[in-house]
């Protein structure tokens, strides 16, 4: 991990002249705009997702948080950990809240009611709010011409409501909606919804879609936020957030689980810039670690037997070897036919 710190050659700074990208952890801004004193779990990866997006965006930002862990845990009335202006939005309101703020600010600036300046507009929604209930609103936001960013922080469950399955919960995971039992070992048989690629493919207005993991590779996520905010128009980032609580692992290891998710290839890291796919960790070229090493470190898979691990491995390999666009789009077109 430490070796990768000062490299990160692949920021592609030249493509984003308006973004001051990080190429060295020692140059990361030291101030926090989401600060200590929030009711998140020990080792919470999503808290880092909050901390890093606002660090990358800076104080001239307005933020909405959809109902979910990062709403309920972060702001306990009448206290707040936010330095920047922040507001709650409804579970499915993420995309719409971003439109509302962006439209309001643009109108007021255009009419000279407030000074003209670039104010970043960011909404964060969880996998339940953003990937399921709110996906229509996010889709609508990506159809507008407003400069806004929607971040879907994905801890693969409704971790704020007792850890129920969502459409982004991976195959086989135990949740309170998919417990293992004497008759059914596996209750959750759905495969993870492919949200980022779906949104990238369906929205011609959207210049930037990325997947990310808060701490790996270092600075990658923060740079993706900077790129999204500088490229113009509506943008979307999907982060995978290892959740000690819902996934049932010791909070010390949240970072390690993130690395493993990327290195096993089960969570592809990429950015789609104006329609061009670029891997920020190419699990098709680099040697993938067996996915079992990722799964068996989480209590939610403690009921898995060999065949379960093999099935998941099969799906991961398929994702990188059979998909038309490896790790991104499962469509099998003429390229594969040839």
């Amino acid at each position: 991990m430490t070796t990768e710190l000062d490299e990160n050659k692949e920021t592609h700074q030249e493509e984003f002249p308006n973004a001051k990208l990080y190429n060295n952890v020692h140059k990361i801004d030291l101030q926090e705009f989401y600060t200590s004193g929030h009711r998140t779990c020990q080792g919470c990866e999503s808290a880092l997702v909050m901390r890093d997006f606002i660090k990358a965006s800076g104080p001239r930002t307005v933020v909405t948080g959809a109902t979910g862990c990062m709403y309920v845990a972060n702001t306990s009335y009448m206290t707040t950990p936010w330095v920047v202006p922040w507001m709650h939005t409804q579970l499915g309101g993420g995309g719409s809240s971003a439109i509302g703020m962006a439209a309001g600010l643009r109108a007021l600036m255009r009419k000279g009611k407030i000074p003209k300046e670039k104010i970043n507009v960011i909404n964060f929604s969880g996998d339940l709010g953003g990937g399921d209930m709110g996906i229509g609103g996010i889709s609508n936001a990506l159809q507008t011409d407003y400069d806004l960013l929607v971040i879907m922080y994905d801890n693969e469950s409704a971790a704020n409501t007792d850890i129920q399955a969502t459409n982004l919960t991976p195959y086989g995971a135990q949740t309170t909606f998919s417990p293992t039992g004497t008759k059914e070992r596996i209750m959750h048989k759905r495969w993870k919804k492919n949200v980022a690629a779906m949104l990238a493919i369906g929205h011609p207005n959207c210049n930037y879609v990325a997947t990310a993991c808060a701490t790996f590779p270092p600075m990658d996520y923060m740079n993706k936020v900077k790129k999204a905010l500088s490229i113009g128009g509506p943008t979307f980032i999907h982060t995978l957030d290892p959740c000690p609580k819902g996934w049932d692992f010791h909070p010390r290891y949240s970072g390690d689980l993130g690395h493993l998710a990327v290195e096993t290839g089960i969570f592809p890291l990429y950015e789609i810039v104006r329609g061009e796919v670029r891997y920020t960790y190419d699990a098709s070229k680099k040697k993938r670690i067996p996915v079992r090493e990722y799964l068996e470190k989480q209590g939610r898979f403690s009921h898995f037997v060999d065949e379960d691990y093999e099935l998941v491995q099969l799906k991961v390999d398929e994702m990188w070897e059979d998909w038309e666009i490896p790790g991104v789009a499962p469509i099998k077109g003429f390229l594969k036919v040839k």
């Binding site: 307005v62 909405t64 507001m87 939005t89 409804q90 499915g92 309101g93 995309g95 719409s96 809240s97 971003a98 439109i99 509302g100 703020m101 439209a103 309001g104 600010l105 109108a107 007021l108 229509g136 609103g137 609508n140």
Partner: peptide, 13 residues
């Protein structure tokens, strides 16, 4: 739902 979320958050700024 989105229509009124949009109006609400526009009003908030």
């Amino acid at each position: 739902h989105s229509q009124f979320e949009i109006a609400k958050h526009a009003s908030s700024v």
